[in-house]
Design a protein around this nucleic acid. Sequence first.
DNA 1: ATGCCTTATTTCATAAGA
Length: 272
Amino acid sequence: MRLATWNVNSVKARLPRLLEWLAEADPDIVCLQEIKVATALFPAAEVEELGYEVAAHGEGRWNGVALLSRAGLEDVSLGFPGEPGYAGDTTEPTLIDDPGLRRPEARAVGGTCGGIRVWSLYAPNGRTPDSPHYAYKLDWYAALRTALADELASEPQLVACGDFNVAPTDDDVWDPAVFVGSTHVTPAERQALADLRALGLRDVVPTPMKGPHPFTYWDYRAGMFAKNNGMRIDLVYATEAVAGQVRAAYVDREARKGKGPSDHAPVVVDLS
DNA sequence: ATGCCTTATTTCATAAGA
């Protein structure tokens, strides 16, 4: 069983590379993030042709997640219970007080694939530590923790995959000094990840394939990929029952090369 | 201090990404 997670940065712009990659890597379960299309416009037919069932949860210009499976796809959840929304209006400098009025975003899709509960997640960016978006990010993590805790009570085999938008340790960024005062490395964000792990989830750290750090994201600008100035923010958090079956895990850096790549590379996990 | 590059959109300019 091969499981993968990949922030494709627009499924429309990446479709040729996605289809090529699916055929080559041959994963059974795929979590996609930043599909950047409305649910109805997800290229389901092209993906289904490769043998996958599809659960897409999109909203248009931003965000959006999807779950592809050749191992069954049941009990699909678009979003999770208690998931907070965002004010989303740049003219609104603070979060709208009434959570019921906040705009929901497409950041989570869950499904049961061959007995494994799988989540494809795209955490809010946070922008800057003093931004309302950062508060939203922490709220979203708190709600995710509660929702996963509920599922874990009855789901021993669960894996939460995706773009977590947090580098778990200083080893997960190319130069910690560059990130002082930035999001993705703050103690509160790292604590949010630690709180997820405390539910009984293990960080399945992939093999880098090049260099000592298993980075999964490199900015498009300034030759960051060529310099291997990256971050590890795409994670696979698995229960012991799943993590114990991991035979291999790696970052597919090849998918970050060539013409028209995403700025993220897929993380691939092989389970026995 | 800022852009570097790429995306989609109320597009030839902007917002967002991390």
